[in-house]
Design a protein around this nucleic acid. Sequence first.
DNA 1: CTGTTAGCGCTTTCAG
DNA 2: CTGAAAGCGCTAACAG
Lengths: 332, 332
Amino acid sequence: MEGVVTIKDVAQKAGVVKSTVSNVLTGRKFVSETLKKKVLDACRELNFHPNFYAAGLSGGKSDIIALVLESNDDVGRTFYSELVMSCLKQASANGYSLLIYYSSDNDKLINILRQGNAPIDGAVIMSPCVNDERLEQIESDRIPCVVVGRPENDYLSYVDIDNKKLVRDVCEALNKNKDKEIYLINSHFDLTISHDRQKSFAEYCAACGTDAQTHSFVSKNSDENDGYLLSRDIVKKSAVIITANASLAKGVYRAAEEKGLKVGEDVAVFALGRHQEHGTFAPKLSYAYQDYSVLGKQAIDLLIEEIDNGHSGRNVLIDSQPTFTQSVEKFL
Amino acid sequence: MEGVVTIKDVAQKAGVVKSTVSNVLTGRKFVSETLKKKVLDACRELNFHPNFYAAGLSGGKSDIIALVLESNDDVGRTFYSELVMSCLKQASANGYSLLIYYSSDNDKLINILRQGNAPIDGAVIMSPCVNDERLEQIESDRIPCVVVGRPENDYLSYVDIDNKKLVRDVCEALNKNKDKEIYLINSHFDLTISHDRQKSFAEYCAACGTDAQTHSFVSKNSDENDGYLLSRDIVKKSAVIITANASLAKGVYRAAEEKGLKVGEDVAVFALGRHQEHGTFAPKLSYAYQDYSVLGKQAIDLLIEEIDNGHSGRNVLIDSQPTFTQSVEKFL
DNA sequence: CTGTTAGCGCTTTCAG
DNA sequence: CTGAAAGCGCTAACAG
């Protein structure tokens, strides 16, 4: 009784033929109750478990979802770990295991997405991985994919923070009477997130009769120094400065201090992206919390939908709740 | 040029036969440089990528490591997430992807470990999953496995905190002059960790001439109430009470307060297991930090060793550094 | 409703 | 050193 137990053994034991066993197991074809029971009993007695590779080779599902992460960016552990854990939880809740690819080899990462190259039914991809034309090449025999963060390509579904709404909300909240000078210090334009924010900001400016051109800036490194340099000339009484992240905001604080302006009182500062504390801010920085748990969960849900029903073209935008604290206190 | 590109296509293009391509790709047999180049070129031109399932079916490696978690216990997210992230990092560093199974179906979890039932070269298993005789059944055709935490079975390698050393160190540190009454409030004996701690404590008692029997207790629920009930009769001046976890310690604090005893001064309290803040303790609780990052990393290392060289029977014990603070202040 | 047959794409004998 | 053929275990046509 040694060696691997195959459906052939089960078939013999149950007194049927291989395909009947297969039909019982996959449930794709009707089999009489009597035979079904015989087969199931035989499976149990022989302790049969189907071979994963063989099933996959002949077109079965793997019940595995991939999470594709690029390991180049150091974007902090807590960030990834929240996404990973929420994907894991949601995938498991739906009967899937989670296979995590974490590599800096973009080529390798992309090849995973081809049909049959990896034991997966679909993949959730962290945005940076897909800024690549090669993805387009394999469009034909690609497995279902969902991207976290809006990708440049328009043929992939995605889940993202609703950045446009966020920017609009923040602008409106901090410039209720449209009597303030409002500015956006954006991150580099390689990121689609920057485009979305810029666009929304421009729309807001248009509605206010403000010149968006002179009121928005693109930062190269998105760091404190950039924030300082770009805000130096614009910080003034009654200015609202919205930055792409907390580091840039830090620079704005410095510029304000240099001019003897009080953040929260003379000038409002708000960071659009902020996940955890990046150092301390006095007065406390207002920001929008990026909830990667929700992103992960929604991505898995959307992916499973695509696995089951094919590409829907549906995308999911998630509301990001701005937290208004000391740094905008007098502007609310 | 459509459809899936197989080695057959590559062979045709390169003007050789299938097996030659295979030999070049797997490198298991010598092939002349000229042909090798031809084949490799053909692969590149056709953008060939081997089919994962087919390779697996014929005995190839998957370069995937499984992490098997049981989802029954609510043992806090931070706990698992540290383990997951460290395994992910270490696996990736060695060219492996990490496939996470997170289920409450112990049966399903165990079947994964059979050869060919899942696309994995080996598995890291969180301890609770393996307390099961069924594992023994599949001993013959099981993939390489490493357990985090000492399993009951002696045929699996494992990585664990060195609990024996920890208990000994703590006992010695808090009872330098052997003039204190020292107690152990252990967790339930289903856990091998409790056995290890008990054993070490008994050894220490023997060396001190203390009766271990009357100085150690088994808690059923390992919660605050258990800690309170079990310690009520033993808290007294100059008592050292070591608990299995922070919840039990909380109960000891309560018992001490009830008797008007000061923790850290009249009575020492130390928690062997503690990963993060479980509420606040005043005075601050002394405890041993369980570093799951190290456990994960070591588990992966050991597993890869087994995948490469077969079962070594080697286990890894990790030092846990006790942190002595206010709750044992006057006992040091 | 059940049984036969032909592959899935790859590795691996075993002859040339 | 290279080529033909067998088969891994399963599913999916198709014929009974």
